[in-house]
Amino acid sequence: MAAAGSAGVHGAARPLMRLVTMTGAPILRQLHLEERLLRRTGDNWCVINHGTAPPTIVMGVSGRVSELVEIEPVLRDQVPVVRRFSGGGTVIIDQGTVFVTFICNKTAVAGLQPFPRDIMSWTSQLYSKVFNGFGEFHLRENDYAFNHRKFGGNAQSITKNRWVHHTSFLWDYDVKNMDYLKIPKRAPEYRLARNHTDFLCRMKEYMPSRSVFTDGIITALREHFSVESTDLETGPSDDEEFVPSTKLLSQKDLEEIVSSKESFRAQKVQA
């Protein structure tokens, strides 16, 4: 493993990136950690989490629940719904999802402008190296795809001096879980009105193992960073001053949305 401060391709010292790997961490814990790393540290981080339980719906900070989630079956089956601190779309995640997050200072990657398209371009170039030889990888609009089928959804948040780019990769997925999500009104053009199963694919059909994927990420990162594994115990500790904005929506929140929809329908009928 490269040592901190080792020379890069052009002789300049590579910035340090701290690597955190987890297995089965609850998504709410992961997102709280990422927001803390973004806002309370000055380091560069890569967070990798293999799977989460139970199956959970995660929405972007400005997503409308009524437009994106089938609320009645979600309430019936008690599926958790989380609103994260970053933008992006809505996903349902489970043990078959692999999460990869980059949290970086604006100066961490030479020449990278801290704007959504620029960050997306850089991460897609990095992942093109990871997937080289395993499939026809493309950045399609804001998604990662093999050919025309999506396997990675992305979200970003940019602060004054730092940015975060996180991806939920579908190593595998349960088809029935997709029924909890509506097809969004603002779907990407390349979706072509396809349903979830026609639009999505599984990474396990293209790569031999999750460890091959993880090793590929670390190898690609070492072209830009000195990568150092970091135990969570040495990371930023919980403190009462930090209040994460990522929230678990309560059953009451969801029930109120259902009630307001039913009330609106009733008013339309009376009109």
Results as ranks from 00 to 15, higher is better:
Arg40Thr: 14
Gln125Asn: 15
Lys261Gln: 13
Asn49Lys: 08
Thr234Ser: 11
Gly153Leu: 03
Asp231Trp: 10
Ser209Val: 06
Leu200Tyr: 03
Ile93Arg: 02
Pro244Trp: 02
Asp238Gln: 15
Arg265Thr: 06
Lys182Asn: 03
Pro15Cys: 06
Ser157Lys: 12
Thr246Cys: 14
Asp94Tyr: 08
Tyr144Cys: 08
Cys201Trp: 03
Glu67Trp: 12
Glu255Cys: 13
Lys160Tyr: 04
Phe85Arg: 09
Ser124Gly: 10
Trp45Glu: 09
Ile257Phe: 00
Phe85Gly: 09
Thr52Leu: 10
Glu256Ser: 06
Gly5Ile: 01
Val175Phe: 09
Asp253Glu: 12
Arg202Phe: 00
Met178Phe: 08
Val61Ile: 15
Met1Gln: 02
Thr23Leu: 07
Asn147Gln: 14
Asn154Ser: 06
Leu232Ala: 05
Gly96Ser: 04
Lys261Val: 12
Ser245Cys: 13
Lys160Glu: 13
Gly96Ala: 01
Pro15Val: 03
Val164Gly: 04
Glu70Pro: 06
Leu37Val: 11
Ser6His: 08
Ser229Lys: 01
Arg194Glu: 08
Ser168Gly: 07
Glu34Leu: 07
His196Val: 03
Asp174Gly: 01
Lys261Glu: 15
Ser209Asp: 10
Ala266Glu: 03
Gly11His: 01
Ala13Val: 14
Phe137Tyr: 05
Gln251Met: 13
Gly11Ile: 00
Ala108Lys: 02
Ser229Pro: 10
Gly135Trp: 02
Leu139Glu: 02
Thr101Tyr: 06
Arg117His: 14
Tyr206Val: 13
Glu67Asp: 14
Glu205Phe: 08
Asp198His: 08
Val130Trp: 07
Arg84Ile: 13
Thr246Val: 05
Gln113Ala: 11
Gly11Met: 04
Asp94Asn: 12
Met17Asn: 10
Glu205Ser: 01
Ile71Val: 12
Glu72Arg: 08
Asp239Thr: 05
Arg222Leu: 05
Arg64Ala: 12
Ser157Glu: 05
Gly235Tyr: 03
Ala271Lys: 07
Pro114Lys: 11
Ala193Trp: 01
Ala12Asp: 14
Val47Glu: 07
Arg83Ser: 09
Asn142Met: 11
Glu223Phe: 10
Thr167Pro: 04
Gly135Met: 03
Ser211Asn: 11
Val243Arg: 00
Glu240Trp: 12
Met207Cys: 12
Asn147Phe: 07
Val61Tyr: 15
Ile218Gly: 02
Tyr190Ile: 11
Phe99Ala: 07
Thr21Glu: 15
Arg149Cys: 12
Pro54Thr: 10
Glu72Tyr: 01
Leu38Pro: 11
Asn49Glu: 06
Gln125Glu: 13
Val69Trp: 02
Phe99Gln: 11
Ala7Pro: 09
Phe102Val: 00
Ser6Val: 14
Ala155Phe: 04
Thr52Ser: 13
Gln95Asn: 10
Asp238Arg: 14
Gly51Lys: 05
Lys160Arg: 11
Ala145Lys: 04
Glu256Trp: 07
Tyr180Cys: 05
Ser157Val: 15
Thr41Lys: 10
Ala13Glu: 13
Val98Ile: 13
Val258Trp: 04
Ser168Trp: 05
Arg162Gln: 07
Lys150Thr: 10
Thr123Asp: 09
Glu240Asp: 14
Pro54Met: 03
Leu75Lys: 00
Ser62Lys: 15
Gly133Asn: 00
Arg40Ile: 02
